[in-house]
């Protein structure tokens, strides 16, 4: 019984050995590729499933009549897009208001952020504390921010109204005024996110050698002159970066308006993301909503590409200088 089994066994093991040896050799030979993709795989699966695939599917959905509850109601080609550009006045109103918000918010968010960062960049005591204060509002969630500011701006119960009364002024119903609602939203947004820009500017400022300032001070350059002749030119790349990041972020405005004014009064603060949300999830028109989000995405993509272009040119200039 033992003998017949013994005979074929050696050759089988050598076959198996040869095969496993070949596999081992293959693995050894391609170990970097296998390791590389092995480590990437978990992220890549999540990334493809929850970002890239939805993006492509969003384009597909935008070409359909797609109901929130029923689902796909059939191909409509570019109809959603023509509707958006030619027949939907609210879409244009929302786009205009969004652009208005971007313009109104970007300027103070960048300039005030820069101003405060320059102030905090001095080697003086308490600067860390001030940075903490200006950045602290950034970690609050949108619904906390709107809850506080909605009350703060309230003409009957807000602390701003109390301050107005104290100096003998009539309290103003900011959020109910067609002309003042958007500026009030801008102020809220500046308070919420300016700290982020301060931190970015501080990082850029720390790269400027202190010796340059000291030399300028010895030469008698005023603080004003130092800012325009040293700080701004040396900080150019950071300023452009913050500016573009801010424009992209401002285009995404939604929560402030959605929770504080619902787009009112008289549509004066209605913005794009809110229109997308309301058409999609209140009007059940996901196909149409998707088409509008593709429009928003293409604007933001264009701005990102400008950033990449400017960034690479900045690199060229810098390496050229070296």
């Amino acid at each position: 019984m033992v003998q017949p089994l013994d005979k074929p066994l050696p050759s089988a093991t050598t076959d198996r050995q040869r095969l496993s040896g070949r596999i081992r050799q293959f693995i050894y030979h391609h170990r970097d590729t296998l390791n590389g993709y092995g480590f990437l795989l978990p992220f890549l699966i999540i990334y493809l499933t929850f970002l890239i695939f939805p993006l492509l599917r969003g384009v597909w959905i935008s070409l359909h009549d797609w109901d929130l509850l029923i689902g796909n109601l059939g191909w409509t080609g570019l109809d959603n897009y023509t509707r958006m550009f030619t027949r939907d006045n609210t879409f244009w109103l929302s786009t205009r208001n969004t652009v208005q918000f971007v313009a109104l918010s970007t300027i103070p968010l960048v300039s005030l952020g820069l101003l405060i960062a320059v102030a905090l960049n001095r080697p003086l005591p308490l600067m860390g504390l001030f940075r903490t204060i200006f950045f602290s509002s950034y970690v609050l969630s949108i619904s906390v921010v709107t809850l506080i500011w909605f009350m703060l701006l309230n003409p009957n119960r807000g602390i701003l109204a109390a301050a107005f009364q104290l100096v003998g002024l009539e309290p103003i119903a900011w959020l109910n005024n067609v002309d003042l609602a958007m500026p009030a939203i801008v102020v809220t947004s500046v308070w919420w996110t300016m700290g982020f820009n301060v931190v970015l500017f501080l990082a850029g400022l720390q790269d400027i050698p202190r010796a340059i300032y000291e030399a300028a001070e010895i030469d008698g350059a005023s603080a004003f002159r130092r800012f325009f002749s040293i700080t701004l030119p040396m900080l150019k790349r950071t300023v452009v970066l913050v500016f573009i990041l801010q424009i992209i972020a401002s285009f995404q405005i939604f929560g402030q308006v959605f929770l504080m004014t619902r787009g009112g009064p008289a549509g004066s603060t209605r913005v794009l993301v809110q229109h997308i949300y309301e058409r999609g999830f209140r009007g059940f028109e996901l196909g149409y909503g998707s088409a509008m989000s593709m429009f928003l995405f293409s604007i933001m993509l264009a701005i990102s590409l400008i950033q990449l272009y400017v960034g690479s040119r900045g690199d060229q200039i810098e390496s050229g200088m070296k």
């Binding site: 695939f53 993006l55 969003g58 959905i61 995404q252 593709m294 928003l296 995405f297 933001m300």
Partner: peptide, 10 residues
């Protein structure tokens, strides 16, 4: 470069 707003409906 892909914002949340571009993918939340799909």
């Amino acid at each position: 470069m892909v914002p949340e707003q571009a993918v939340f409906i799909p």
